[in-house]
Design a binder for these strands. Structure first.
Lengths: 270, 270
DNA sequence: AGCCCGGTTCCGCTCAATGGAACGGGGGCT
DNA sequence: AGCCCCCGTTCCATTGAGCGGAACCGGGCT
């Protein structure tokens, strides 16, 4: 029954200098830790070991172990035969209820499928999310260019077709805020000069579509149009193809029709 | 500076009978609570208010409030203009890294799109998950039947085309375990008799495809085939259509070809 | 004006969560 | 084989983060 009056003379708890959560700089909540662990996964790291999670999340091994165990029992993580952790179906299943998936993706999909069949090229659908283009879905053909875009992934606004459209239709202040930050240049063709970019955005808004040429990936270009709703561009559809095969006029026509169909589809309930 | 020696004579903390988490029957961890809150969302409830979350999760209002606030700062929940909570894009974004999405869905999508264009009917792709058919994706046409299946949703194995295929190719013991539990009957045509069902599963395995007629929804039927890999059915593709329009032979041929294409597609890396 | 109801804030009380340390165990290198 | 190293697991004393009842707030409806 005695407790708390242990050694003090020989090793052990004499060095017990760091209790609970004083050591770690940031006092994150339990739930925050759970999220931090889940956020360790990325396109490059779709499966991770416990120690990798511990390293990436900056959490001590024992803490990581406990958090991960709870996420596993909750079905948010699964451990494969290779002893590596992956995102679980439970998490995925819940995520499908996100508006972006349930309302936008599902309803657009048939139209995207038709677009894919008509063009035979990569089709992408994206929305603006946290200052980046969030790819809501994509359709990649066997013969089409390998695209960096990935469903669920983020890419810069100024180097992608869909991104430029989404940015162009933003209120002036948001555009200026975006331009004020330093802009990445994934390729030598990327437009990072605020003045040039602003001019191009004005043009995009005027003509109703955007074009990119090797601004994200060498050798490929893209065309994109907005999906309008209530005067705002709520999403963008685009085609990514070999630079040489990029028939802008034809694609603009096809894309605009598809965008209208989707916009119409979204009108329905609520 | 004084503390802990307050009233005791007049109201207040004299009734302080329930500390920390003694009241609630189950001693759930913080992370468990976070998951419990997220799990309140469903196809019927894609947006919820705080009190609804509190009621569904069986957590006290104040606790729910705190948990929800943490999920919001983590981007796992968002609060809309209507003050209702929804699943956030951050959660969705991470979820796309789940194997079921990244490896199965994305790779199958082009083939599903083609299938959709060829048939003009509802296309579904599902895997076995927690004793149910988990719909990995679906394509619904404007003119095709409204389907109950929803990407991310679960349906019983014995009342759906894809479900019967998935169950049929399971090891004998799993089949028996499934049959030993009481089976739902969404429609009068649903097969809930273990003996009849077992016979049908054997037939499915023999002929390589399954057929349902009004077993899940009145007026509609379906055909489905397995996607095989290493001798196991890792997924199933199906078509749902009006009962009258269900041309089984033609669909089996089309679906089998598509399933082979997908299976081949999955062979690649790892 | 009064009421109700969803939501927010407050606060004293603990116990669940914490992380250092010790322990296991498998696989690769010598 | 023997060794070591690294990944993972278990243990445990400590305490502050999480807890939930209660009071408070504000807007819509009666």
């Amino acid at each position: 029954m005695e407790r708390g009056l242990l050694p003090y003379f020989f090793g052990r708890s004499s060095v017990y200098m760091s209790p609970a959560r004083t050591t770690s700089g940031a006092p994150i909540s339990s739930i925050g830790r759970g999220i931090a662990v889940l956020a360790c996964f990325s396109a490059r790291f779709r499966s991770l070991t416990l120690s990798e999670l511990s390293a990436k999340s900056k959490l001590p091994m024992s803490s990581t172990h406990r958090v991960v165990a709870e996420l596993v029992t909750g079905g948010f993580l699964v451990r494969g035969n290779d002893k590596r952790y992956r995102i679980g179906t439970r998490l995925w299943s819940i995520a499908q209820l996100a508006p972006v998936s349930e309302q936008l993706r599902e309803r657009s999909l048939p139209t995207l499928a038709r677009l894919y069949e008509e063009t035979g090229e990569n089709i992408t659908l994206a929305v603006l999310d946290r200052g980046q283009a969030l790819y809501v879905d994509r359709l990649v053909g066997e013969r089409s260019i390998p695209s960096v875009a990935r469903a669920g992934g983020h890419l810069p606004l100024h180097t992608t077709g869909v991104g430029k459209v989404l940015l162009a239709y933003q209120p002036k202040e948001n555009i200026e805020k975006y331009l004020s930050r330093p802009l990445q240049r994934p390729t030598p063709y990327s437009i990072a000069d605020p003045v040039r970019l602003l001019a191009e955005l004005t043009e995009v808004r005027a003509q109703g579509y955007s074009v990119t040429r090797q601004e994200m990936t060498a050798g490929s270009g893209s065309v994109a149009v907005p999906i309008m709703r209530g005067g705002r561009a709520i999403a963008a559809v685009g085609v990514v193809a070999h630079l040489a095969k990029l028939d802008v006029n034809r694609l603009v026509a096809t894309l605009t029709a598809a965008a209208n169909t989707i916009a119409h589809e979204l009108e329905d309930d609520h």
